Simulated assay, not measured.
Amino acid sequence: MEKKSFTFDEIKQKLINYCVYQDRCHAEVEQKMREFLLIDEAKEEIFLFLLKENYLNEERFTRSYIRGKFYIKHWGRNKIKMHLKQKQISERLMNTCFDEIYEDDYMKTISRIYEDYSSKQKGMQEYQRKSKTIKYLMSRGFEYEKIIDIFAEN
């Protein structure tokens, strides 16, 4: 099947719509641009336009990504960081944006997931249940030290 060719303005509009639909990071927009056979100058012009008009804002993307992955998906900081790294978000930007997660909410979430998961582990010794629950929480991206803090309370 032959690729439909678009004019510069059509491509620009498609990329605006792509950014308006949901916050995007630079890497996602660059990936999307590869679908269109654009010369480098055209890519750069569109990219700068998206930045200038605030359709593309890496900090806004990072903040909304962190909020969504924590408050909706209940991921821990480590898992969120790993996924942001894959999206080529800088360590510095990540660190400034993690204030989107309130420490209190973070600890309550670990505690809630701990309770839920642990209560479903039947027919095993306490230490087995504990170690399985720790592994589970770590796989969700929560830090070992924080998980241990929750165990100290329970």
Rank of each mutant, 00 (worst) to 15 (best):
S5M: 14
L37P: 01
K4R: 15
K69T: 10
R24T: 06
I80K: 07
E126W: 01
E2V: 08
K4E: 15
F8W: 01
S118H: 09
C25Y: 04
F98T: 08
E44N: 10
L48A: 02
M107E: 11
R60H: 14
Q86D: 10
L15Y: 02
S111D: 12
K43M: 05
L84W: 13
Q88W: 03
H83Y: 14
E91R: 14
Y127Q: 12
A42D: 06
N57D: 15
R34G: 00
I101W: 10
R63S: 07
F98Q: 05
F47T: 02
Y136I: 08
I148Q: 14
R129W: 02
E44L: 08
G76R: 11
R140Y: 11
L56R: 02
C19V: 05
R34D: 07
M82Q: 15
R92W: 08
I66G: 05
R140D: 10
L84Q: 13
F142W: 05
N57L: 07
Q86S: 07
K3F: 07
Q13A: 06
D23G: 01
Y106P: 06
T62Y: 12
E145T: 06
E35H: 14
Y117Q: 03
E28C: 08
E115M: 06
K85T: 12
N78L: 15
M107S: 08
G76C: 12
K4Y: 14
Y18L: 05
Y71E: 10
L51M: 10
E28V: 04
N78Y: 06
L37C: 07
W75I: 04
R112T: 10
F6M: 09
